[in-house]
Design a protein around this nucleic acid. Structure first.
Length: 286
DNA sequence: ACAGGATCCTGGGGGC
DNA sequence: TGCCCCCAGGATCCTG
């Protein structure tokens, strides 16, 4: 669920609620495994530590704690990371509860358990973890020349490259589709066939779509809520994502959907003309 | 070497 | 109403 705009919204929501707060107690409230193992020792290490800052890196949330230590959270598809009043009844699939020194409670909830929370004692450990996962530059910092080099170097589709976290961090299925629509670029175009102008246009579109989505507090399709429990609003502005069969906002042609790399790609067949290399195939979902 | 598929999970929706 | 199949915002491992 959460891509860059959702994670950014959560971080902005949590910042005034968490910075300066101290963990009073920390406990697991489920016994099922998360994507990365939770170490019970952290329940002794975290209490007493203060949240010094909170930031986002790609789709990762980083709580900077005492010294060099940090708690790094990924929300997977269905994760929620929310500050609530402790009297709020425990939700289903609640995995972690952090009691704060102001009487509030930080909760990590994740239905499908593709998310994780990991404690790193040193900055080097944390940096290594990001390095090992192959975390690339933020989309707003991405050098256009480096972006073009990434496109030239691969036979993958532009959609696959956009969603590759090592090329650009934070873009997922929704915003890849929305950005490609804005750029007038078919998702199956082979990245290395893009002209310089097309590469620029795609990067600019990614940045514009992400910024607009952040302004709208992200997209709530099902599970996503911000750090204070509020839903996002960008789902009301989708041009193509989840709109198969509905009219293209520019030309009224019905939006199409096709499976690509195991994910659905939504696009307008007129505004995003099919590349020659895929015109031969007829692999469209009806 | 690299690209794409399978896999990890649960719940909701559509079809029958 | 109920069951079964498919689908979902992600990342990683395995295979060809």
């Amino acid at each position: 669920m959460p891509e860059l705009p959702e994670v950014e919204t959560i971080v902005r929501d949590l910042r005034p609620l968490l910075v300066g707060r101290k963990f009073v107690s920390v406990r697991r409230t489920s016994s099922v495994a998360l994507r990365k193992p939770w170490d019970a020792a952290w329940e002794q290490i975290l209490p007493g530590q203060t949240v010094r800052a909170i930031d986002r890196r790609g789709k990762w949330i980083v709580l900077f704690l005492d010294g060099e230590s940090a708690l790094v959270v990924h929300l997977g598809m269905t994760g929620q990371f929310v500050v609530v009043d402790p009297i709020t009844l425990p939700e289903s699939h609640l995995h972690l509860v952090f009691d704060l020194d102001d009487g509030k409670q930080l909760r990590f909830r994740d239905t499908r358990r593709f998310g994780s929370a990991t404690y790193y004692a040193t900055e080097a450990d944390r940096a290594l973890a990001f390095e090992e996962t192959g975390l690339g530059p933020e989309p707003f910092d991405l050098d256009p020349a480096a972006w073009k080099r990434s496109l030239e170097a691969t036979k993958r589709s532009i959609k696959a490259v956009l969603m590759d976290q090592s090329v650009v961090a934070g873009v997922g299925n929704i915003y890849a589709d929305e950005a490609l629509f804005r750029a007038g670029m078919h998702p199956a175009r082979i990245a290395s066939t893009l002209t310089g102008a097309e590469a620029d246009r795609v990067l600019e579109s990614v940045q514009a779509v992400l910024m607009r989505a952040i302004d709208a507090r992200g997209s709530s399709i099902r599970d996503y809520v911000g750090g204070s429990g509020l839903r996002g609003g960008f789902q009301e502005e989708f041009s193509v994502y989840g709109r198969k069969g509905e009219p293209c906002p520019k030309c009224q042609t019905p939006i199409e959907s096709r499976r690509q790399n195991g994910r659905a790609s939504h696009y307008c067949p007129v505004c995003q003309p099919a590349p020659p290399e895929s015109q031969a195939e007829t692999a469209e979902d009806e």
